[in-house]
Design a protein around this nucleic acid. Structure first.
Lengths: 233, 233
DNA sequence: GTCTATAAAAGGATAGAC
DNA sequence: GTCTATCCTTTTATAGAC
């Protein structure tokens, strides 16, 4: 443990920022509220990080980048160990999603809602080009691995399904705290159930070209326009 | 119908707000930027709606509430038509997710990114209790229907999987504009592929109780800290 | 209903003493 | 490195003329 107060202040700011960003959103969180909650001075953020964007980047460096490195590492390990055998889908999904869920489970209060934070980083346009590139690379590598394990799929459809898996995981993380079971083991079990669900989806053969409309003919009703006719209730 | 300019102004504000909210986020979007883009006066929002929260509620009333009514209506129709036959999972999922995707496809420029807007409404804590209640009801009814169609599942696990489906759909909507295929039919095809993927997941039997860790032993690496840190509360 | 002007508050950022 | 004080900008919101 270092005695430097510097480190402590920086970490406190990062912890506080992570928590508030994930709870309220990045744009909605003022630097003042971050320093206030961290118990440090108002000017501390600017001294230690520069500005708000730099603070976000620091959060990414501390948490998200290492997490993504772990995800890539686990893919490396699977591919190295697998040799020429085909890799199990569920194992691939665990390698892809597990480090994220693990991170949320292990981290302290500061990132209890990692899923929300990640969702926000994706949604709120934070111009962290490096982050985006990193996610892109991760996605590509896993999409390729999945396409290899499921040759019938093709890389594009594997990539699509991988996005759905990501969306599912974000929902899991965001609702994790609502679990009625004991926090830690509950999350683990829900994760396993999610993997099971997703793996079954991935194993589904690529649909030929059935054509189905997502809308009923009278869907225009949805828009709040027209279509008063023909509605039987 | 009406010649009143009032209606036009209100709609222009709503269109503009929808677009900007979905692109930049609610908190990050100023009322000024909304009126500016709508080409109406700065004070118009306050005159017509009151404040920012009321504006959000107006958006919900105009778009999201009707959309959710459609989703419930389609469930009603499926249950009525089905009688005692068991309802097809894919059909249930189309009824649940279709109206959302249809809405994004049908609506004008104002809501091109409906998925993002919905995600934001969920994530950014907008205190619209009514909206939340409405989503809750929707979720419950579909979870029950799915549990009925898949008796082995149980309502809780059906509800979990339904959340994953929602997460997947949000990803679909958010990335819909990136489609390389022609916008409309591309979305339709991707939607069908997603349904196919999700339905396969839903049909997977409930996993007994295999126990798997989502983390490798050295997952602590993910956190960027070292493992000898020891236990915590 | 629409506009201009402006009040009142909050946010990001910095200077300079300690 | 930390603190106080402050500047500048943006934002919500309102008052009042037209």
């Amino acid at each position: 443990m270092s005695d430097h107060k510097t480190k402590d202040t920086q970490d406190r700011i990062l912890d506080s920022a992570e928590l508030l960003f994930s709870e309220q959103g990045i744009a909605a969180t003022s630097l003042r509220s971050i320093t206030q909650r961290a118990g440090v001075n108002t000017a501390a953020i600017h001294y230690h990080f520069g500005d708000k964007l730099a603070l976000i980047e620091a959060i990414v460096s501390r948490r998200i980048a290492p997490m993504n490195r772990e995800r890539l590492k686990r893919l490396d390990e699977l591919e190295a160990a697998g040799g020429h055998r085909e890799i199990d889908i569920a194992e691939l999904l665990r390698a892809y999603l597990g480090p994220v869920v693990a991170a949320q489970a292990e981290w302290g209060e500061g990132a209890r809602k990692l899923g929300a934070l990640m969702a926000r980083l994706r949604i709120e346009q934070t111009d962290i080009e490096a982050l985006f590139a990193h996610f892109q690379d991760l996605h590509d590598r896993y999409a390729k691995a999945l396409a290899r394990a499921l040759p019938e799929l093709g890389k594009d459809e594997a990539g699509e399904r991988l996005d759905y898996a990501t969306g599912a995981m974000i929902h899991l993380l965001m609702h994790a705290h609502e679990s009625s079971e004991s926090a830690a083991s509950g999350l683990e079990q829900r994760f396993e159930r999610m993997i099971h669900f997703l793996a079954a989806g991935f194993r589904a053969p690529s649909e030929p070209n059935t054509r189905h409309r997502f809308a009923n003919p009278d869907v225009v009703d949805v828009v709040g326009r027209v279509a008063e006719q023909g509605a039987r209730t």
